[in-house]
Amino acid sequence: MNQKENIKKFVYIPDGLEKMIGSLEIPEGATGLVVFAHGSGSSRHSPRNNYVADVLRSYGLGTLLLDLLTVEEDKDYDMRFDIDLLAQRMLATTKWLKEQEETKRLAIGYFGASTGAAAALQTATALGDMIGAIVSRGGRPDMAWPYLEKVKAPTLLIVGGNDGVVIELNQKAYDKIRAVKQIEIIPGATHLFQEPGTLEIVAEMAAHWFVKYLIIK
């Protein structure tokens, strides 16, 4: 059964004693939903991820932008790099989505930036075929190194052409991933894709990847 109406609301997703706040938007007729895992120091208010989410919705995909850490947790710099905790929160989020009437029938994809990409990849290994596709933007997939061989979801790694160290880390991660995979290096882009036109390229690449693997034809 496809989604019958547009949905736009805040959601509160429990993980133990904590609750994550998220912005859920699902276009009418959507069959896929992309969960955003933000990078260190970022949040559901990230203008870059919100731009990408807008583009994904224009392609008929639902989006969930959420804060994996509480406000207090985010003040602890080390917690921003606790990939195990971030992955635990992604896992709790995905299980919650599969229990909700509005989202339980939707194919799930992950969009991860920076450390969020590592959390997305690690979580995907625990969920197997439940995750339909993954896109990493300027990600640190190397931080999920022990899990990369177990990733089953088709994975797209997008890196800025002027993000030298991260290019190398992504290429090493790409070599270790055994699933369907692709790596794209955007010429002239730095880590945050702030250069004119570069984020637009990222959004279109991500949209085509998710449409290919999440939208039921």
Score class of each variant (00 low, 15 high):
residue 1 M to T: 10
residue 3 Q to M: 12
residue 6 N to T: 06
residue 7 I to F: 05
residue 13 I to A: 00
residue 14 P to L: 04
residue 17 L to E: 15
residue 21 I to A: 09
residue 26 I to P: 06
residue 27 P to A: 03
residue 30 A to D: 12
residue 30 A to Y: 09
residue 33 L to E: 01
residue 37 A to G: 12
residue 38 H to F: 01
residue 43 S to R: 14
residue 47 P to F: 00
residue 48 R to V: 00
residue 48 R to L: 00
residue 51 Y to I: 05
residue 51 Y to L: 09
residue 54 D to L: 14
residue 55 V to F: 08
residue 59 Y to S: 11
residue 65 L to S: 06
residue 66 L to Q: 07
residue 66 L to V: 04
residue 73 E to L: 12
residue 80 R to V: 04
residue 81 F to P: 00
residue 82 D to S: 13
residue 83 I to E: 00
residue 89 R to E: 13
residue 89 R to W: 04
residue 92 A to C: 12
residue 93 T to R: 04
residue 100 Q to V: 06
residue 101 E to D: 15
residue 101 E to T: 15
residue 106 L to Q: 07
residue 107 A to K: 14
residue 117 A to I: 04
residue 118 A to L: 01
residue 121 L to N: 03
residue 125 T to R: 04
residue 129 D to V: 00
residue 130 M to W: 02
residue 130 M to A: 12
residue 130 M to I: 09
residue 133 A to G: 10
residue 133 A to I: 02
residue 135 V to R: 09
residue 140 R to F: 02
residue 143 M to H: 01
residue 144 A to V: 06
residue 146 P to Y: 08
residue 157 L to T: 03
residue 161 G to N: 02
residue 162 N to H: 07
residue 168 E to T: 07
residue 169 L to K: 14
residue 169 L to S: 08
residue 171 Q to D: 13
residue 179 A to K: 13
residue 180 V to W: 02
residue 181 K to Q: 07
residue 186 I to H: 11
residue 190 T to G: 10
residue 191 H to R: 08
residue 197 G to I: 13
residue 197 G to P: 09
residue 200 E to I: 12
residue 203 A to F: 12
residue 205 M to P: 01
residue 206 A to G: 11
residue 206 A to P: 09
residue 214 L to Q: 06
residue 214 L to H: 04
residue 216 I to F: 13
